Simulated assay, not measured.
Amino acid sequence: MKTVEEIYETLKAGMAQRAGFVPEDGCDLAVRLWAAAAQIQALEIQADWVLDQSFPQTAEGIYLDRHADMRGLTRLPASKAVGVLRFYVESAPAGELRVPAGTVCMSADGTRFQTTEEAVLTPEVLYADAPAEALEGGAQGNVVAGAVNILTACPVAVTGCSNPAAFSGGSDAEDDEALRERILASYRRLPNGANAAWYETTAMSHTGVAAAKAVGRARGIGTVDVYIAAESGAPEEELIAEVQADLAVKREIAVDVQVKAPTEKTVDVAVELDVGDGDFDSVKTETEQMLLGFFSGRLLGMPVRLAELGDKLYHLEGVENYRIISPAEDVDGDATVLPVLGEMTVTQMGA
Rank of each mutant, 00 (worst) to 15 (best):
R71N: 13
W34L: 10
Q258K: 12
V255P: 04
D281V: 06
L33R: 06
M204G: 07
T159Q: 02
M204V: 01
L73G: 09
L126A: 06
M1F: 05
V215T: 00
N142Q: 10
S326R: 15
G208E: 11
A132E: 09
D274P: 04
A36R: 04
Q140M: 03
D225F: 03
A178Q: 14
A78E: 07
Q17I: 00
I7D: 04
V224H: 08
Q53A: 05
A328C: 01
F280N: 01
A197L: 13
A196Q: 12
V209G: 02
T115E: 06
K284L: 01
I325M: 11
V148M: 04
S171G: 13
L64G: 07
V120N: 01
G301E: 04
I325Q: 11
G26T: 06
A178T: 14
W34Y: 12
V99P: 00
M1S: 05
V224D: 07
G278E: 14
K265R: 15
G14R: 15
G72F: 07
V50W: 12
V84A: 00
I240K: 02
T74S: 15
G169Y: 03
R305P: 01
E136K: 05
H67N: 04
G72A: 11
E320A: 08
Y322G: 04
A128R: 11
N163E: 06
G160H: 04
V269E: 07
P327T: 12
Q39M: 12
A245K: 12
R180G: 08
F280H: 00
A38H: 09
A81R: 07
A218K: 02
P93V: 04
A59F: 05
P327G: 11
Q114W: 05
A185V: 02
A165S: 14
D246A: 15
R86N: 10
G138L: 08
D334N: 15
N163I: 08
G310M: 10
P164K: 03
L292Y: 12
M15T: 10
M290R: 08
C27A: 09
R323D: 10
E60V: 09
R75K: 10
T207G: 12
V271I: 14
E9Y: 02
M106N: 00
E181A: 15
E136S: 11
V283M: 14
A157G: 00
L239F: 06
V143G: 02
T345A: 10
T345E: 14
S186Y: 09
A261Q: 10
V84M: 03
V89H: 03
Q46W: 09
R71H: 12
A210L: 04
R217Y: 06
P93T: 01
S232T: 11
D48H: 09
A248S: 11
N149S: 14
I45A: 10
D25K: 07
C105K: 04
E200V: 09
E231M: 12
L126I: 13
S54T: 15
P77V: 00
V148A: 07
A145I: 06
G342I: 08
V340E: 01
R305F: 03
T3M: 08
A351P: 06
A153T: 09
A234N: 08
A128M: 11
G72R: 01
T285G: 14
L151R: 01
L300R: 12
N192K: 06
